[in-house]
Write a protein that binds this DNA or RNA. Structure first.
Lengths: 335, 335
DNA sequence: CTGAAAGCGCTTACAG
DNA sequence: CTGAAAGCGCTTACAG
């Protein structure tokens, strides 16, 4: 057995004394193949360790059975979790996942310039804001796309109400009597990614007015959705003379980073400062972190299912808005 | 312009008044094409937004320009970081990354049963212990493989000396005067994945003897390389009557989880218990966690470079052992 | 239920 | 420097 050369559909056909067409049908479970023939073919295929060449299948059928999952970064819990959930669902649906990292600072603009799109049946965008040109490229390709985390003109989306989230989180703090609330937003990893952060901030601002909270500009500091980012942002926030009595971080990782920064400043949570995050990261329960849970795993799964549906029926399947819930733990308390 | 139908090499050839062969050569930068012809073809290709069909190229050339990155899970900082580093290096080298999650509990055994391997030029295994049958499948396929994190018979590897690491970490603790050292190992996410954890444990055991430390069995508890796992393991560890005065966790995430568990028990670090981790996760600096750094990013990059070399020269390129360094911070101190 | 044949969109010797 | 032609390994009408 030559290790270099694997067998082709022709080898199987020859061994089984049938045509390649029959082998193709038999192995793919298509109808109109005698059971006995099918069994014989399966046996031969097994013995020869035959595996269809995906490139040939794709070329011939026009279907690749793979979907591209496009993310701005591979780092951070949010992306890993959503990717894992999508991949799992896609695998169950019979699709491979091609993961593409399309950081905006990648001047090559992989999504547009590379021809990966031609090798793919569908696309899942995870919190990827698109430049106009990329969006057009995608639209022109006419392949199904679903976006997670934000609505994009022309594509189905799985997302949450980020404005409401920003409002609710702030309102929780205001309800506890806090008047000076610091906010750690998140932007860094994607220059185009203003949206999620901006919408949460808009919600916060609305609540800030509604509850007559302190309105200073230096109460809002940018993080980058990481623990380190949250840590540094917190340090900056704490430089102002009148320290906030509460903090809203736009992710749990930033919230925990901020918590560590508070600790390094000799501050206790929630005695000296209340902290609320967003996500319900698995570590949040360990910290006792109050947070707005957004059920990240289901985002990934739902998006995959939406795409699978699109792949089958190819008509519009609409959007999904996932519920969000406040989980109160021990990091926030009455001021 | 029909949005459904993208142009083929034939369209470009027709427009440019040359044969498809010439278009193929021109666009791939091969020699023996007149500069003027090349320019004309490039222009037409641009105008028609021509993108070569990857499946067709693969089928015709036998090269796919994609490498499979196989991981047991998508979760956890270690995997994200290594994947990101590998992907970045591969992209620079002109390769796509196909990420395959091959959890062992996936009875389908994706690596073996699926034909993805036929669509791929090379494979990077990230901390994937392989069953014999999978290893054989890979070997038989004769495509270049490099393994990260552990040595696998027949493949190049990028790894660290885990035994030495276990010894060094323990010896740091022993040097501080600790006699009763708890250990949180890590196994869960991959039943076959005894190796890394076992080797570190072997190193620890050697040090345990060498420094005459307490040898009770209940001083070793299994985690799963996550914060939650570390948290629970710590709780278990602290049930024993004579509590350990120091803890070695086989990852920083577990170490931080254990730290939170200690906190929940009213214990301070390092006053009541010293903690040392492994990895040098970015959050470790924030915590002040002492750790053994293993430069995870470079693992991913080095492996990709090794593979790229293998892909070019196709002869054996050997293994790489990455250095490991103790970073002492404030979570460990004299007992 | 099965087979012969065309075709998917490229690449690659081989001629010229 | 360029083109005609075969071939990569499948799938898909079309006949039978």
């Amino acid at each position: 057995m030559n290790p270099q050369k694997s067998s082709t559909i022709g080898d199987v056909a020859a061994e089984a004394n049938v045509s390649v067409a029959t082998v193709s049908r038999a192995l793919r479970g298509l109808p109109n193949v005698a059971e006995s023939t099918r069994r014989r073919i399966e046996e031969v295929a097994e013995r020869l360790r035959y595996q269809p060449d995906p490139s040939a299948s794709r070329l011939a059928s026009g279907k690749s059975s793979t979907v591209a999952i496009i993310v701005p970064t591979l780092e951070g819990w949010y992306f890993s979790t959503v990717m894992a959930a999508s991949t799992t669902a896609l695998t169950k649906g019979g699709y491979e996942s091609l993961i593409i990292v399309d950081a905006v600072d990648d001047s090559a603009g992989r999504l547009v310039d590379r021809s990966v799109l031609k090798g793919v049946d569908g696309v899942i965008l995870i919190n990827m804001a698109l430049s106009d040109s990329k969006r057009e490229t995608l639209q022109r390709s006419a392949i199904p796309v679903v976006s997670i985390g934000m609505k994009i003109e022309g594509f189905s989306a799985v997302s949450i109400d980020d404005v409401a989230l920003g409002f609710e989180a702030t309102s929780h703090l205001a309800g506890l009597g806090h008047k000076t609330v610091g906010v750690i937003t998140g932007l860094k990893w994607n220059p185009f990614q203003f949206e999620v952060s901006d919408r949460r901030l808009a919600g916060h601002m609305a609540a800030r007015s509604h509850f007559s909270l302190v309105k200073d500009d230096d109460l809002v500091v940018g993080g980058d959705f990481s623990m380190v980012g949250g840590y540094n942002a917190m340090l900056k926030l704490m430089e102002r003379p009148e320290r906030p009595s509460a903090l809203l971080a736009f992710s749990d990782e930033m919230a925990c980073g901020a918590w560590l920064a508070a600790r390094s400043l000799g501050l206790s949570v929630p005695e000296d400062i209340s902290i609320i995050g967003v996500d319900d990261h698995p570590m949040s329960e360990l910290w006792g972190l109050t947070t707005i849970a957004q059920n990240v795993t289901s985002h990934g799964g739902l998006a995959a299912e939406l795409l699978l549906k699109l792949l089958k029926e190819s008509d519009d399947v609409g959007d999904i808005e996932v519920e969000t819930t406040l989980i109160q733990r021990s990091s926030t308390r009455v001021v």
